[in-house]
Amino acid sequence: MNKELKILAVVVFFSILTYVGVEPFAHSQMHKHVDDPTYAYADLKDSGKKGDAVKGKELVTGAGACTGCHSLKAESLPAPMDALTSASAYGVNPPDLSNSGALYDEKFLADLIKNPAHALGVEHKFKDGAMHPMVGFYGAGGDIDQEIADMVAYLKSIAPTAENLTPKDAFESACGRCHSMRYDKWSKIGTDPSFKSDKEMYEYKAKVATYDEALKAYMGAMPPDLSIIIRARSHHFLSTFIENPQSQLEGTSMPRVGLTKDGEVKVMEYLTQIGDSSKDKRESLGPWVILFFVIFSVIAYFWKQSMWKDLH
């Protein structure tokens, strides 16, 4: 018996050595090290101003302001243009602002309003006089930082609480205009309807394709479908990439998303729901199957002992 344990130790040792070499070690050499996300957005300054939501509402919904391009469903303000027209004008459909106060970091929102390309971390794309499609806020005549603080305060005041924001909403607001989610029938311009005829289907698909074309031209490459990205990338990769895309893929045209930690958790929850839908079943079945084989092995051990005891 003692000898068998020694042999087992040798087998286990070389198996683990191989595993550690080809898995954790090789992967640590293959991928560059990126620190866990902090969601601090330390490169962005905090103006320290306290915002007034009432004043902010006038600024956000006033003539020629945010709602000139963005919809605001929370206030029943529709988008001035549909997704397709927007995409042909800007390259991408501007997001509805209802959830933004709940999803995005305050400092990030403030900087985004003032200087979109900077906040989004895509200044490398807009050199040589090219303009980011979202126009920065020039101020309404007063203290610009105060005005921006008011706007952020307003956006936060209309945003749903964490309990009321579903993971799906979080995904649609933060990711869904550039990324499809075909395992949940999400096509960037909306959820795919069921079609009564081929004509309806082709018309809808043509719309999606038109939108995709504009988006591809704007981004330089088609942003990937995220249906099972949760299994294609590690959690660490996704969270650091979302916090700062440049940290993982230098030069990528994916903008910084600016999510708070809670916002990121919501998005990840949705990605898991769709991309790893068997997770709960897997985790609840696992212990039972393993328990079965533990009991199996115990009975088998005693059987073996009884069979072998007359032999020596």
Binding site: F292, I295, F296, I299, A300, F302, W303, S306, M307, K309, D310
Partner: peptide, 21 residues
Amino acid sequence: VNENRRDFLGMALGGFTAVGG
């Protein structure tokens, strides 16, 4: 006695496996 015990354990294992199956 040994024979019985052997049979019992072998059958117990077979039965347990059958339940799993």
